[in-house]
């Protein structure tokens, strides 16, 4: 069943000023429940604007966003409630932390949702566990945490609202390699348990190819491609013409294939590549 349906969605910034700019142009797609959608595109391709229309932060200039079959702008006075169903984690979310303690900050969303104190406590602790924040950290001031911890606390603040759809706008940007790994693993762990729909915006093709079921490629506000990572990254030239690239490992394996080695098409992760090469070496009797 499709949880989100986007119909001919468009948005233009600054209508009637010299700064008028079409940010999103006639985008349509259907997303099934429990799917992980990777969203890639060049800087300024309209990714961020697009995801902000999914939870009603930006009102589309034309077109519709249907959440469980209902237009989210149908009752525009209740648009605030959509935020609890479609959780949105912005770029560099650590800059939104404000409360005295991490615990209070994470509980900001659930409290706005109108949950009771017990429910809030439960959901805050659960969210903190998903992102690996210990109880000791919960009582600290968010400004005393390290960069990676702040990021995770901010993400917990959105997860705590228990949204059916989670939008993550470049959640791993600016983290060190280990921090990225840990955060990605935590997000995937959360997805496995909660089985909700996730939109994952990223510039890291490696991250996208690892976690996405389908990939949306945006270019100049338009939805250029929508397919499985394997099919998307097979079209190297088209991807590169839009200022993007395919995962490094995919490129290496493609080059090997072109040079006549017997390797299957569409290798996306290092693990796959590893087993492919082991197979190849075994076949040739080298190990």
């Amino acid at each position: 069943m499709s949880i989100i349906e986007v119909k001919n969605l468009s948005f233009t910034y600054g209508i009637g000023t010299p700064f008028e700019k079409k940010a999103v142009d006639d985008v349509s797609l259907c997303v099934n429940e429990g799917e992980v959608i990777g969203l890639i595109g060049h800087t300024g391709s309209g990714k961020s604007t697009f995801v902000q229309m999914l939870n009603g932060l930006i009102k589309p200039t034309s077109g519709q966003v249907l959440l469980e079959g209902k237009d989210i702008w149908e009752k525009s006075k209740e648009i605030r409630k959509i935020c609890f169903k479609v959780g949105m984690v912005f770029q560099y979310p650590e800059y939104q932390l404000f409360d005295e303690t991490v615990y209070k900050d994470i509980s900001f969303g659930p409290r706005n949702k109108g949950l009771s104190e017990e429910e809030i406590d439960l959901t805050v602790r659960k969210a903190a566990k998903f992102v690996g924040l210990s109880d000791r950290l919960l009582n600290k001031s968010p400004f005393d945490l390290s960069g990676g911890e702040k990021r995770r606390a901010a993400i917990a603040g959105v997860i705590a609202m228990d949204p059916d759809v989670l939008v993550l706008d470049e959640p791993t940007a600016g983290l060190d390699p280990k921090g990225r790994e840990v955060l990605l693993a935590q997000i995937m762990g959360y997805h496995k348990e909660r089985k909700n729909t996730i939109f994952f915006v990223s510039h890291s093709m490696e991250d996208i190819s690892r976690i996405a079921d389908r990939v949306m490629v945006m270019n100049k506000g338009r939805l250029e491609m929508l397919d499985t990572p394997k099919n998307i990254f097979a079209q190297v030239e088209k991807i590169e013409s839009m200022g993007l690239r395919v995962p490094q490992i995919t490129k290496i394996m493609m080059t090997l294939r072109e040079r006549g080695y017997d390797i299957t098409d569409g290798v996306l992760t290092v693990e796959q590549a590893f087993s492919e090469i082991i197979n190849l070496l075994e076949k040739e009797g080298k190990i």
Binding site: L57, R80, M88, F90, P93, F108, G109, N112, M161
Partner: peptide, 13 residues
């Protein structure tokens, strides 16, 4: 603008 959007996304009224 950004911070307001982020807090609105967390249901701030």
């Amino acid at each position: 603008d950004k911070i307001m959007a982020a807090q609105k996304a967390r249901g701030a009224d």
